[in-house]
Design a protein around this nucleic acid. Structure first.
Lengths: 347, 347
DNA sequence: CTGAAAGCGCTAACAA
DNA sequence: TTGTTAGCGCTTTCAG
């Protein structure tokens, strides 16, 4: 019955006419601005509801010179945790009145194109994940005074803000716990081509602590960042001489692959003969086949910090880039000989 | 040097001035419309590049009455495959010149609010995943002539288009293969509160085929859709009387949980004493601890079909809703006693 | 092939 | 508290 032949959606002008007020009052009513009497506001709501009016975000963004979109630029999405991160980011952004514009880069190195084209939507800011934007793009954001925050990646020398798990500290904690349980011969399985900063930070914290305790320098094997990589690394690691008694992996997928290889091909008992520790705490880590001891990343907290930073920089002007570190939690399961008592207060 | 004190980004007017043409020619040049001489086009490109001009999508969307955003409304994101789906969707949409506006619903049932608010961005269309929009919202989209396609969910009686794995056919194929290998006592582990249509379609195809072959009706256990659910289901299933000799699970996570329970608690050999088959083919299914025989969903193909449908409906007017079924591939691994030869042509 | 002009639906001064 | 008015940056007739 309410469908006259109007083909276009209702606008604020229609609402104004229906409510018997001017269009600008309608605008104020919907932007929650002050200066509208409760009675008028009510009439406007009624009229709007009746007409099925919807606040046009494009028009709003155009005049405001800023959409309420938060651009999420993603590189190589591979880890199941990326899904949680996306979800948390989107949920939290929405709670603050923003929506997420998701742009995936063709590959991890090419986030720059993605950043560039998201600029056309005048977002409130950009969150970059699973990849690292190039210096040129970071600079461009700075020039435009557009908040940019990396999550899960170290910005290195660039001027972007970031929120990161405190990889190095967590890795040190792992080493300390392993040391306390009597392990001495360590190995570290790194991620990808070892170029990723987060993997290097984990390696650094772990190895430095082991060496400082008088152990031989851990063997570092680079087998790629996946299950297959971890599986393959086992061959390289266990084939020669005396195998390590504890291995720390740059990611859970690696650790799980390594465990499977150790059990199937080497026939070594975990953790009796060899302890393995992962990083991330993805869902599979807790499965009974693995019960992987690992470092949990607080994804939700990281998402929250990222949005916080973004909105904060949006309010103020670009200052120095901020770096926010979120601690990782050591989750003790059964893949490593670590006594719970040795890690008081890690959780 | 190029930074004069201009604080606002360059607009098409600036470019026009710099190139010595009118603004409308600039517009044509950038919307790839015909009717601009190569020479002029070149001059415009130069000027634009020099000024760092970016086509403002908000303004374009406003005048055009249609942004080039594709709204992706997601319910409960849980399965690792959801990440692939999001990624594929976004990649393919981008390839066609669109960008993805991601809106996550607070919970699976409440996609309606999400749909409602995405309408304010005048998207080209809406893709719904991991949840099912309510009838009211579907109707609203129809009224607005806005393409809506569900992926991975059956639209039931509603007027939305959909692209789905052909769950029933795949389930039948699983039953046939199991039957051919001599299995007779079947069980089906269903998903969630058994209300999800996709789980029911799998159950239907599987059970009907088993019964038609003269087997006793499969035992159906509902343990939730996760690893934990599958793990728990094993207790219920293996505790009483004669255990099944083959179990088909509504999802891989369930199957993996079930396998772990069978091996750890019941001590039964897989596949010698009991065959297990999953659905989805998530990455973990191929891990050597499991080597799960399962039905692979062609995520990429589904994403492609979804976008296709959307853009097609966008071009034409809303007609009858279309339903596109994408076949599932039976992937033979070692968790079930199925001879490869018995399933010719499934791949 | 190019230019002038009229808006898209909204916000934000400014006036009343 | 409300109304008037001038655009935001772009597409799109319609003339030249």
């Amino acid at each position: 019955m309410a469908d006259r032949k109007r083909t276009r959606a209702a606008t604020s002008v229609d609402v104004a006419r229906a409510a018997g007020v001017s269009q600008s009052v309608v605008s104020r009513a919907f932007s929650l601005a002050p200066g509208v009497s409760p009675a008028t506001r009510e009439r406007i709501q009624q009229a709007a509801a009746k007409l099925g009016y919807r606040h046009n975000q494009l028009a709003r963004g155009l005049i405001t010179r800023r959409s309420n979109l938060l651009a999420l630029v993603a590189g190589a999405l591979s880890n199941p945790l990326h899904l949680n991160l996306i979800q948390s980011l989107s949920r939290l952004a929405q709670a603050r009145g923003h929506r997420v514009l998701l742009v995936t880069a063709p590959d991890e190195k090419d986030m720059d194109g993605a950043i560039d084209d998201v600029l056309a939507y005048m977002p409130v800011g950009i969150v970059a994940m699973a990849g690292t934007p190039g210096a040129a793009q970071v600079g461009e954001c700075a020039r435009l005074n557009l908040p940019l925050v990396l999550v899960g990646r170290d910005p290195g020398a660039s001027l972007a803000s970031s929120v990161c798990c405190d990889n190095e500290a967590a890795a040190r904690r792992v080493a300390v716990a392993l040391l306390a349980a009597g392990h001495r011969r360590f190995a570290f399985l790194s991620s990808r081509e070892a170029e990723t900063a987060f993997s290097m930070a984990r390696e650094r914290g772990f190895c430095a602590t082991a060496v400082a305790a008088g152990c031989p320098a851990p063997v570092v094997v680079n087998g790629g960042s996946s299950y297959a990589g971890g599986y393959a690394a086992a061959g390289a690691l266990l084939g020669c001489g005396s195998p390590p008694d504890a291995v720390f992996c740059a990611g859970d997928a690696i650790a799980l692959g390594f465990m499977d290889a150790v059990r199937r091909d080497a026939g070594l008992l975990i953790p009796d003969r060899i302890s393995v520790v992962g990083f991330d705490d993805m869902p599979m880590a807790s499965w009974t086949s693995y019960e992987l001891t690992t470092v949990r990343q607080r994804i939700e907290a990281m998402a929250d910090a990222a949005i916080d930073l973004l909105l904060l920089e949006d309010a103020n002007d670009w200052g120095r880039p901020t770096k926010r570190l979120v601690p990782g939690d050591l989750i003790i399961r059964r893949s490593a000989r670590i006594a719970l008592s040795s890690v008081e207060g890690t959780r």
